[in-house]
Design a protein around this nucleic acid. Structure first.
Lengths: 214, 214, 214, 214
DNA sequence: TACTAAGCGAGACGGTACGTCGTGTCTTATG
DNA sequence: CATAAGACACGACGTACCGTCTCGCTTAGTA
């Protein structure tokens, strides 16, 4: 099971928590009802797909999952945290960053996968989480974590490409990641109807060849 | 005063509205209290800066502006609409897209201005509006309008650059715009702490030279 | 309409309130929706009769009255306050303390009326309010007010009887009131099944003749 | 140990229970942890004294007694039952109804003892139980039991007084009990500030002499 | 002396109601 | 007739307890 920053598993950690914060430690994950956990996450995702992130209320999640509201609040600080758990599961269930040896191919594959995600139910969730992250620190931290992992994965692939002589060595890799994903996110968040017709290879071609006239 | 798609000015339009919807037409803009209008927009922006977009409630705006809630709802469908008015005013108050003759310089200037905006009070508003746009159609339409104008402005500048031989002619200009602004928005919305150290020229250099090793 | 200690009517009072408490004054009773007020009180009383005082929740009152919970909380601090309003209305709608000239007759009449009340829907409400008064200061104050009025009414009648030579002059009238009503309340609250067969004349006879053997 | 109607001791009864109800028999009192029992009752009483009957929650009792909630629910159906146990213990720890030979003296003594109780921590508990009894059948039964015992004790004393020619023989003794205790309970429950200055002899004098002018 | 069944502490669980906040609409009185 | 003020019906919030349940653990009484 993945790590979570709230609701910690380790006994020692819980004890320290008790000392440091002087108050009630988070609940004991050993006693957690796994069935409820899954029902909650699933209900949240379904509702998100049906009525959208904003209208997905904690109350509705609890009702659909057949769960008390408190059970949600016991383990997650907000609905955003619930849905982040879904996004993290989603990410970890996906294959690692592809590595066929050819960078352009791999980036195209990965970009296409993202376009795919954006168009799926996960895309609705992710869109909502990014929106929430603009004001809710918990959501922000979670989104950032997901993004940072993705950036790290991509950076690692880019580093290999630099060694293989397939990529300029004099550009900050984090910036390259942003050059690669930025346009896609720009469309996703600001001009969503452009996602449907998105052609990864077109953007990557321009990006690799550069915008200067030859 | 700028056009607005809700609260229409034209007498004929109002009459048609009356017929189609059967009842109350939108209010008569001639009788509108300009002082209230300004107070509302200003209050909204200030609150946004002080407590953030999310906690900026219509009630708080009304209270701070010394205005009845109804006066807000009479002229705007939501707080997002109020703040969109601010963003539009902001945009129109700025100079047009710069044109010194050198595309790279102009893009850098423009990008820097955007970085600047992102760091200002307007950046808080804009961030909130983009978030709202992910679920609220009104906000989405408004944001889209602002973005489309900006894209159009930039595209126009790019077209001139193509003619001047400063830009590849075989790439879709809208995509170029996304290549130019995407990385910046990616940082703004997903990794906000990167904005502070953003160096437009670095991104533009990579973009123009391309990522292929030389 | 009767005075209420919360939700005051007088403009001056409201102003002073604002000064003294430094905060939001109670709402303006001029704008109060009389229909809602009545619906709320009626719903509360009906629910009390149907499910008992304890299970009469503010939420259920609001639902049955077709009213928002806030509308209840705006005007009353608790359900007890709502039901106290009913009890006060009930009391003021009743005739004054009877005065036929004969004290024993009047006390019997009045006692019988109370037995009657105890057996009616009002008896359920009153029982609940007395129970609530044992821990809730608001209820306590309200119940006390009702009781004090009743005691005062009875005392006044007793005073007349003293003058008419129908009652010992050397006993504290408040104590006499308690001697008259105490047994009845003792039965009502502690041995409720005794109320059904209560015979006011029996108690009054013993009380007036005294317990000493002749 | 005193009898309790729930949590039965007899093996046969437990067996029948098992048959009739199909399942779990009530727990075996032989294995009961006496320490826990006492801790629970004590915690309940202390909390009652500190925060009042209403705010004395089962959770708080369990926490203060260092006991699991289930241990409370295993042996008592509600907090009222716990506190009734305290009241019953209290009653049985007191001496029997006094009998000096002079009824008036004994009643005064007993009344004074009650005034005393009302002013003590037990008075808070008792008040809460009487309140609870107005809606909770378990509390009602328990309170009634306590009251009935007290009434029986007093009645017995009164019967002796009748034989001794100290009391009218033609009045129902239960009514006499109510005449004696009613005024005191009236004050206790409806006008509590009158308890502090309560003078048993005054009430008893009026009661015995009668209210008729001489 | 081990086995087993029960009571125990702890506390997670599905619920219900709480009292508060904000929404968008409606009403009242003022200019 | 637009306005400031604010009451209204509604819906969701996050919290407190309810009474039930499930966990390991201790602790008897039985094998």
């Amino acid at each position: 099971m993945q790590q979570r920053s709230w609701g910690c598993q380790d006994e020692t950690v819980r004890f320290v928590w008790r000392i440091v914060h002087g108050v009630t430690p988070p609940p004991d994950p050993h006693r957690r009802n796994e069935q409820s956990r899954q029902a909650i996450v699933q209900a949240a995702v379904e509702l998100c797909g049906e009525v959208g992130f904003d209208k997905t209320t904690v109350e509705a999640i609890a009702a659909r999952a057949g769960v008390g509201k408190q059970t949600i609040y016991r383990w997650w600080p907000s609905k955003a945290a619930v849905l982040l758990e879904f996004m993290k599961d989603l990410r970890s269930s996906r294959a690692d960053f592809p590595d066929t040896g050819d960078l352009r191919t791999d980036l195209r594959t990965q970009n296409a996968a993202l376009v795919n995600l954006f168009g799926s139910r996960g895309g609705v969730v992710w869109r909502g989480l990014i929106a929430a992250a603009q004001s809710d620190p918990v959501a922000a931290a979670g989104v950032r974590e997901v993004i940072d992992e993705a950036v790290a994965d991509c950076s690692a692939r880019l580093a290999k490409a630099v060694n293989a002589g397939q990529l300029r060595a004099d550009v900050d890799l984090e910036l390259v990641v942003e050059l690669v994903y930025g346009p896609l996110y720009h469309a996703y968040l600001l001009r969503p109807d452009r996602i449907a017709g998105w052609r990864p290879e077109e953007a990557l071609d321009a990006l690799f060849s550069g915008l200067q006239p030859r």
